[in-house]
Amino acid sequence: MMHVLPYLVAAYIFLTGCYGLATSRNLIHAIGCLAVCQSSTYVLLLAVGYQDGATAPVFSDLRPGSRPVVDPVVQALTLTDIVVGATVTALLLALVLQIAKRHGTVDPDELRELRG
């Protein structure tokens, strides 16, 4: 059960973020929800690399092979993922700012010019 739990948590976080996005009444909140969706990928990736009783893969005070370590690859992936996420969030928030200036609202229910 303990091994399935992180995956269930990741799925829950992703779906929560999607629910927030679908029902959002404010675009800043929507971008926040997108960031929530993304944090599910951090949980999933770190859970994939986890091992019981293993330590951090830092070999400055650790002889290689003396202890099990958690998978450093997924940690590198997570770091890259965070960088990607920061870029996306920053750009989308900048667009929201511009929407607020041009439309005078950030409520998606009122931004419906592009349709049909």
Binding site: L34, L91, L92, V96, I99
Partner: peptide, 15 residues
């Protein structure tokens, strides 16, 4: 106004 709105929709769905 339309350009930033279209770009945001594009951004949220694709991301």
């Amino acid at each position: 106004a339309k350009a930033v709105q279209g770009a945001l929709t594009f951004g949220v769905v694709n991301s």
